[in-house]
């Protein structure tokens, strides 16, 4: 794959679960690029690497990351491409699947659903 450092370079990110794809510049994190396009394939939370809801597995492509919470991503996971979408900056086209999910409302087990 072609790997470049131009911060305005655009790459295509594909979410394998839904088949949707969107473009992401190399200076943008994957979650921001997705949200700005109005897409919702990856759960969107704090966008700061802290809350962990946007956990993904990158199956193909090159990327750089910023620091993310070890409460949600272990060093082993990070090394194997299991990362937070809000801390991933593409350096090539990316293909990923979604691991994280917004937990359903904590009241789901009560008799009266919200």
């Amino acid at each position: 794959m072609n790997v470049v450092r131009d911060e305005n370079q655009s790459f295509v990110v594909t979410i394998e679960d839904t088949g949707e794809s969107f473009s992401c510049q190399s200076r943008q994190h994957v979650l921001s690029a997705m949200s700005r396009m109005g897409k919702k394939g990856i759960p969107s939370g704090c966008h700061g690497g802290g809350c962990g809801v946007c956990k993904i597995q990158i199956n193909d492509g090159a990327y750089e990351t910023k620091k993310m919470s070890r409460a949600h991503i272990s060093a082993t996971e990070e090394a194997s491409g299991c990362v937070l979408a809000c801390r991933v900056f593409p350096r090539s086209d990316l293909s990923l699947c979604v691991i994280g999910k917004l937990q359903k409302n904590i009241l789901k087990k009560t008799d009266k659903p919200l």
Partner: peptide, 23 residues
Amino acid sequence: DQIGSGIFYHTGVLNEAFTTVYT
């Protein structure tokens, strides 16, 4: 049944993040 209005009065809708996104 009125949690949404309690938290966000105008929309009356509790966004998903309120109880699921935290540190």
